[in-house]
């Protein structure tokens, strides 16, 4: 698809920002998201091509404003629901209950 991900040759994206001594994961959740690629792949929930296509289907503004591992998280939230492994309601409820537990 002719999406925002297809960036070769685009201009005016700004400077390339580098980080000295960059850690493998900047936040703990990034490591969990990374690992979930393997567990979901092993369960047969997607192959690498479906995975990439799910990232390509993100809205262009969201794609540009979110990080690499947020793209991966988007895949799981999209594909697992599309495949009927989770429902959106389940996910929303779990987030709400985790938030409640955190606040109490």
């Amino acid at each position: 698809m002719n999406g925002i991900h297809d960036m070769g040759g685009m201009q005016c994206m700004g400077p390339i920002i580098r980080e000295e001594n960059e850690p493998r994961f900047h936040e703990e959740w990034e490591g969990r998201v990374f690992g979930m690629f393997f567990t979901n792949f092993a369960e047969g929930h997607f192959n690498v091509d479906m995975f990439r296509h799910a990232i390509e289907r993100m809205g262009p503004a969201e794609y540009l404003e979110t990080s690499y591992y947020e793209h991966w998280l988007h895949v799981y939230e999209t594909v697992l629901v599309e495949r009927g492994i989770l429902t959106q309601a389940e996910i929303d409820e779990k987030i709400a209950s985790l938030r409640q537990a955190g606040e109490s």
Partner: peptide, 12 residues
């Protein structure tokens, strides 16, 4: 120009 997945970039 498929709406589906492809690895052929536009610039090529």
């Amino acid at each position: 120009n498929p709406l589906s997945h492809t690895r052929l970039p536009r610039y090529i």
